[in-house]
Design a protein around this nucleic acid. Structure first.
Lengths: 195, 195
DNA sequence: TCTTTTGCGATGCAGTTGCATTGCGAAAGA
DNA sequence: TCTTTCGCAATGCAACTGCATCGCAAAAGA
């Protein structure tokens, strides 16, 4: 066999370039040639690793999902063992919010893909059950009497992310809204962390 | 002067076609020729009423804003005089959620424009202060002790809309999450536990 | 050394894009 | 009736799109 190449790594390289283009100029600016230029490779190489543009898009969407998943597990693992539920939940939620410039870029890409899949339901595959599991997990962190608020917590987080990206809310406003909501879920706050 | 034509009405006709295309196939499919075909007019006419594509997009965004504004005032005006605050708030919020097939289409368009403006901040002009005013208005409907939850209510609504469009939540789940949240703001309606 | 297989660049092509230009018919004022 | 001016269609064009094809170089096995 001739030259061996880590195929998956090359695909990631290209997908990263795609995400940079999408974060800067939107999905409409994502073309084979733009992505190739951004990645510093030839257009032919992009075609070599993705037979079609749809395949490239699908792969990039997976990378976005993996990234946000990694964001959660990373932030959570930085907590100690058995953190208080409220603290754990807040850590997860803030990990998903576009608070830093870097995560804002990711957020813009995720938003672009959201609009993308809203019109191509067949491409939404993985997303569906992902949130389902998240809802269940969040429910386990809430006080027993408030388990039914799990779906609302996630929706609140998503909406705050949207307003953050749109510039309607500042970081402070978004965090304040989040903590206000957590207060109402865990009972009147005094001992609660980070306020 | 020769033939007189209602210029604004023609522009609306074109913008409506644009929104139909965007709702069906996304903003990427919005081109002069597609919109013209959808509107049943010649491409030249579209160019006649919008000198550039950006101008057309900006006009369509205004129409989207007007439509959602009309959705609110329409739903509210269908209430009687001086409705209870919670009822008024719930009516407003459900008017903005993509619950019917028609409002789902509008929601997809709004989502597409959201991703569009996230990458072109200069095009977001009107949106910003719109939400600001809405937050203030919502705050006025909340119990005095919970005024600080206004931003969260709107964010929750936005997030529910997102999940509705994405198919993660059903209409029932979204409404349940909304009512659960309203319960915790206004106090338990009857047997339901709030905090 | 020769052959085969793989990675990848180069080129070409039909279709689409936004936009500028041109021309023409029709309607209103003279 | 003539003329001007507006409403709009038609055509053209350079730039771009995704994708198919071809070809070549390098590396591993023979």
């Amino acid at each position: 066999m001739p030259k061996r190449v880590d195929r998956h790594e090359r695909r990631r390289l290209i997908a990263d370039a795609l995400m940079r283009v999408a974060a800067r100029q939107g999905l409409e600016a994502v073309s084979l040639r733009h992505v190739a230029t951004e990645a510093g490779v030839s257009p032919g190489l992009v075609q070599h690793y993705f037979r079609t543009k749809d395949e490239m898009m699908a792969f990039a969407m997976d990378v976005v999902r993996d990234r946000s998943q990694a964001r959660i597990t990373g932030a959570v693992s930085r907590l100690g063992e058995d953190p208080p539920p409220r603290h754990l939940l807040r850590t997860m939620l803030t990990a998903l919010l576009p608070l830093t410039e870097e995560s804002r870029a990711d957020g813009r890409v995720a938003l672009a893909f959201l609009a993308y899949t809203a019109v191509r339901p067949e491409a939404a595959a993985g997303t569906r059950e992902g949130t389902g599991q998240l809802v269940d997990f969040v429910a386990g962190l809430l006080p027993a009497s408030r388990r039914d608020a799990a779906a609302g917590v996630l929706a609140l987080m998503e909406g705050l992310g949207l307003y953050l990206l749109g510039g309607q809310y500042t970081v402070e406003q978004a965090l304040a809204a989040l903590d206000t909501h957590l207060d109402s879920l865990y009972g009147p706050a005094d001992g609660a962390p980070a306020r």
